[in-house]
Write a protein that binds this DNA or RNA. Sequence first.
DNA 1: TGTCTAATCAACCAGTCAGTTGATTAGGGC
DNA 2: GCCCTAATCAACTGACTGGTTGATTAGACA
Lengths: 121, 121
Amino acid sequence: MAAADPLDRVFAALADPLRRDMVARLADGDATVNELAAPYDVTVQAVSKHLMVLEDAGLVTKSRDAQRRPVHLEAEVFDLMTKWIERYRRQAEERYRRLDDVLKNMPDTPRPKKGKERWRP
Amino acid sequence: MAAADPLDRVFAALADPLRRDMVARLADGDATVNELAAPYDVTVQAVSKHLMVLEDAGLVTKSRDAQRRPVHLEAEVFDLMTKWIERYRRQAEERYRRLDDVLKNMPDTPRPKKGKERWRP
DNA sequence: TGTCTAATCAACCAGTCAGTTGATTAGGGC
DNA sequence: GCCCTAATCAACTGACTGGTTGATTAGACA
């Protein structure tokens, strides 16, 4: 699997409702894998897999306490997302504001330029 | 197909780097499907599919201009995400702050230990 | 009328993902 | 030593996803 952008992993991790629910519960405090799995109608192995996804995204970390592996929420990674989101939201809003100004003063609007350089995913 | 939580769709839509790039470009201004597809090394059909994902998530809308279908970024949906994120981040930080206070007032208590990073290559 | 362009629809393929069952590692408690 | 619990590893399955090619719809224009 190609080394994905950290943003890929964070967004993908939170695209699953069960994983979002786990994050929501972990915001209340650390929990073990079995504790996390208890409310759900899936096996503990499935929950363990979900936790790995969250861990790879940097959203949680696991420590060690004997056989238990308490899971801890790492809230800082949220900043990655909010920064990305806020950037483009602000940019879009700024553009609307300017567009409004232009429309207020001119009957004719110029076309936005289009991108030209190639881009590989 | 079951109607997924709007948050499912928004997070999933932004988990793809090509779709994020399209959103970034649309923040600069509306564009047609062909304009959006131009820089990428995929067919226009593939880009059309990506746009459907963004549309289902409520991130973009399409209007009509003859055969062209200009795509427009709908920035409001971002609020859904930021609200969710901010809620749990603040909750986690609040909990951390209280834990710090407790630990500060207890004599001879060890600092909370951090788990080891587990970034898979 | 044709013809060209923009975009979507349809069918298909390979890879990934969420879930399962079963086996295995690792650490108490006795 | 033995047993129990916590968690992961391994292999498999069905469903979804991102991509392709080819056909089709819809509008502009000579």
